[in-house]
Design a protein around this nucleic acid. Structure first.
Lengths: 352, 352
DNA sequence: TTGTACGCGTTATCAC
DNA sequence: GTGATAACGCGTACAA
């Protein structure tokens, strides 16, 4: 009727009230889940019908001003372009959207200055909470955040002292499965090529490796453990190349993640070392398409989407009950055996 | 100094005004770049100093309520988990962040209802503009959007009549290069396995195929053209399987995208057909890691990140100059030859 | 049960 | 050049 000439401006609460023949305050109560019980059922119906007819959508900005809530969550990740993060972010977004929150995402490329800046910008925007997936273990920006009382949840990283809720995978367990798989195949000289212990996951996986080796009664040879700067293919290639050239007699590699494992493929190809015939490789993450590589990669599967969901739930919980105890959700990794692992050179033959 | 006892609540404009001994309105003018010239220099100084001291940060929500600008842009994509989108989204976010905008992202899984809902939610949040990457060609939600005068830019999709700015790649040209490459290798019986023409890119690539074949003096056999529902691996496998079983004597396939090409790999593996020895395959997009597949995939590379950047710039332009002519940015695709293409069975031999 | 009145933090638009 | 005032759209004490 009155919205001829195109959908000019959106219907406001006042419009709904007018159409329903009630006061805006009443309309507000009728539309608001929590206060609906204060209003007569028939009035509620009229208001709801009016809202429907006008396609009324409350203005979150106005509501936010009143309630000092923005229904927006900041998400800070290193790099969306890293195949690890899209499923995590989707898990976060799906979950948060369902609860009426929007997500403001920022990439920091693991640069501390950019991270600090991102957090500040997000806070200036009055986000109701923050989900942080950047990876360093020491982090001043995070310290400040803890003091500021802004609700925060961490994904895929670990603070030493459990002051912040966390959704992550049990890295040590994952590595343990990788090592166990290799040990069962008969490997003893197992190398670990990982990333810096300054990165939360780098540290966990390193520790997991040491533990797992000892647990299997194997000796974690320091000469077979190389930790690089980052979880990247070039780093994997560099470190693996060095290990190969040093000729330390390893028959298997537990890589810190799939990208590093891929770097190992590269270094081995370059030197004509066959995988898995001569050296087995296990990755970590089970990124998309690793099953299509040659050889198809044996790796540890991480439920990334679920990790995002869990982080979002943790944050929601934190927003609703700020004083509840800090929880950690640890998801289960799973070994996926494919083509990059086999018995070590001698064993396969002698067994037949 | 004075912010002992923790950062309780942020300073407001009124606080700044009080400290500077001026009226809030004056403080507002002094702090606002655009209106600063209306205020005496010394007053400006006092206000700025006061703001500094209180670490004043304007409340974007309140400002947004008043100015009805949110400095937030909505980004609507089908699925972040599709390797196509992360670089696009990063390009968008990087560019927009640099201009002070935040981005609110939503995934629709190409479901029209969810798309409609997402757009509505985003508009209710008073986003200053929308970037839309969903793919269908006919789109009521989009029609409404055009009428509503909300600034919009499209990425990677095409409306028939240039009513909206667009950043995309020249799909037809990409397909032309694929066909030319195959033709040069000696192929004549070339198939096209694509996605529905209801999808903007599906349609473009289909048309490109027809054109290119004719351009090379080849006959686009309708029996060798199969269009599926979506750009997915299972669809590729299904369609390619059907084509293989029908035994129409094709020697090469131009796939609608890399995922479909991957499906072709699957169907061929299943039937013991060798790629590229018996049939060559060309993909589209150059997703991460396709060089790692076996065989490494020959495909068309798309500058995805740049596409995102271009879309963001287009939108910014649109926000600033709503009445400027609608522009389209068409990026250049590039053929990347790898291992999935070779001369057709007969030719390679007879040439030696 | 519903209406009144006010305030959230800013800025636009008047006066002065 | 600056101050007063209203208004953006909504939620909520308080009054009726």
């Amino acid at each position: 009727m009155n919205d001829h000439s195109g959908t000019r401006t959106r219907a406001t609460l006042r419009d709904v009230a007018r159409l329903a023949g009630v006061h805006p305050a009443t309309a507000s109560r009728a539309l608001n889940e929590a206060t609906r019980s204060l209003v007569t059922a028939t009035t509620v119906q009229r208001v709801v019908a009016a809202a429907e007819e006008l396609a009324y959508r409350p203005n979150p900005i106005a509501r936010g001003l009143r309630t000092s809530r923005s229904f927006t969550i900041g998400v800070v990740i290193p790099d969306l372009t890293n195949p690890l993060f899209p499923p995590i972010v989707r898990g976060i977004e799906d979950t948060l959207n369902r609860s009426g929150y929007g997500t403001l995402a920022t990439n920091t490329d693991n640069d501390p200055a950019r991270e600090r800046n991102a957090i500040e910008t997000l806070r200036a925007r009055e986000v109701d909470g923050l989900i942080i997936a950047t990876a360093r273990r020491d982090d001043e920006a995070l310290e400040e955040l803890i003091e500021s009382n802004v609700p925060v949840a961490l994904v895929n990283r670990r603070l030493l002292d459990r002051r912040l809720p966390l959704a992550a995978v049990d890295d040590r367990k994952g590595i343990r499965e990788a090592v166990a798989h290799l040990a069962e195949l008969g490997h003893e000289r197992i190398a670990h090529i990982g990333a810096s212990r300054a990165l939360s996951t780098g540290d966990q996986r390193y520790q997991g490796f040491i533990e797992a080796m000892r647990g299997m009664g194997l000796d974690p040879d320091p000469d077979l453990i190389h930790l690089g700067e980052s979880f990247t293919e070039p780093e994997g290639a560099r470190l693996c190349g060095a290990l190969l050239d040093a000729d330390r007699g390893m028959t298997a590699i537990v890589a810190g993640n799939d990208l590093i494992a891929l770097g190992c493929y590269d270094a081995m190809d370059e030197r004509g070392v066959a995988c898995p015939a001569q050296i087995s490789v296990v990755g970590f993450n089970d990124m998309p398409f690793v099953a299509r590589f040659s050889p198809p990669m044996t790796t540890i599967r991480i439920p990334h989407y679920e990790m995002g969901v869990a982080a979002a739930e943790l944050l929601l919980e934190r927003i609703e009950f700020p004083d509840a105890a800090v929880r950690e959700v640890l998801l289960e990794p799973a070994l996926v055996v494919r083509g990059s692992t086999a018995p070590p050179p001698g064993v396969g033959l002698s067994n037949r």
